[in-house]
Nucleic acid binder design. Structure first.
Lengths: 209, 209
DNA sequence: CCACATCTGTAGTGAACACTACATATCTGG
DNA sequence: CCAGATATGTAGTGTTCACTACAGATGTGG
């Protein structure tokens, strides 16, 4: 038996376009008409390929987090917790104001609150944000074990903190904050992580005695 | 001429109910049916009183920011920049997890991204968030003038930073973070403000020389 | 008690929404 | 070249949306 007519569009390219629509308008604000037009296909092709609107969102999120995961790996490869935070937040300041993309972060813009029938969309986004937080926490646990973070540091709290700042920056970016403003936020934010570093602790202790 | 039939509902009580619906479902996710049911009125009463859905949102935001403004006044009344940040972020940790309200912050939950026809809703929310940020900035300008913040401190950047953390905490709260988790974030965040204090600078300088 | 003005409840309005039936087109395996 | 399988484009489907026409109710000023 034959394997049927092949699809005439590139699913990944179409996903990139869908991602941008969700990114700009959010899940509920994005309409199937906008999505299909951006993807260059008709509704039946969309539904045959992705199931429904929520399936399309999940596929777009998979692609987004996959691309982002490569970058996050570079972030946590930084030698110290302080530099991890700096790379992460400075990188976010740049990425969230990159004119090649809609402002902000898809994991925030996608939908913080949704109406009846889409309640699990915010959960879905939260789960993806939590993955980033877990990756940061693991890195900070290592930093503490290595003596990079001081003994009293709480890796989970630090990871939550960096995550929270990242999300806050995303919201500010989507409401018009420019790159310089976000970098200033990142710069201040990093100082809280620095305050947890063992090197900083030793520096002050050395001055003291 | 007569002044017509008096309205049979309390506009402020109705607004409180509408506020909660917007808070929980966002602007686009909230339907007129949900709003009218929560407010205990019928659509014509809503439209006669508030114009349209967006007018109702603005009225709810006015009420929200008015109540919040009282609290913000207490926050900026703290004696030092560090304590301003601490009161603000610790208070937010508590308020955003208060079971009496939906989790998170209306100024974030209301709508970060919206569809065609509601583009100004995110702007409206951003403008209200900016008011808080301005109030913080003014307070930090004063703190710098008073010698509370060190000479190299940037009050605008600090205010943006505290605002960003507050927003990030709001998103985390709405996706299930509990009070203790938010307090940990606030605790770390405050340390960045502390690092900008003149007292901290003097303490380190005193140790050095 | 009457003219007028405003509110309220019922019952819709057209538009936009996510989604799909169906006929047609294009492939593979035999 | 045919049968089965999958994709595509056209043209809808029913539902839900924000919003309102209208008639009756309830107030004030004369």
């Amino acid at each position: 038996m034959g394997m049927g007519r092949p699809r005439e569009f590139d699913a990944e390219m179409a996903l990139d376009q869908a991602m941008e629509v969700f990114w700009r308008h959010g899940y509920e604000g994005a309409t199937i008409a906008q999505l299909t037009e951006a993807m260059g296909i008709n509704p039946p092709s969309l539904y045959a390929c992705f199931g429904n609107k929520e399936g399309l969102l999940k596929a777009a999120l998979d692609r987004y987090t996959k691309l982002r995961g490569v970058w996050m790996d570079e972030v946590v490869a930084a030698p110290t917790a302080r530099e991890v935070a700096e790379r992460m937040l400075m990188g976010i300041a740049d990425k969230q104001t990159d004119p090649a993309n809609p402002p902000g972060c898809l994991l925030v813009q996608g939908g913080i609150a949704c109406g009846t029938g889409s309640e699990n969309v915010p959960f879905e986004l939260a789960a993806r944000r939590a993955q980033n937080e877990d990756q940061l926490r693991d890195r900070f646990v290592r930093a503490k074990a290595e003596g990079d973070l001081k003994e009293s540091a709480d890796p989970a709290a630090l990871a939550r903190y960096v995550s929270a700042v990242a999300v806050g920056m995303g919201v500010m970016a989507s409401s018009g904050a420019d790159r310089e403003a976000l970098r200033q936020v990142a710069d201040v934010a990093v100082q809280a992580v620095e305050a947890q570093s063992a090197a900083e602790e030793r520096r002050v202790a050395g001055l003291r005695g």
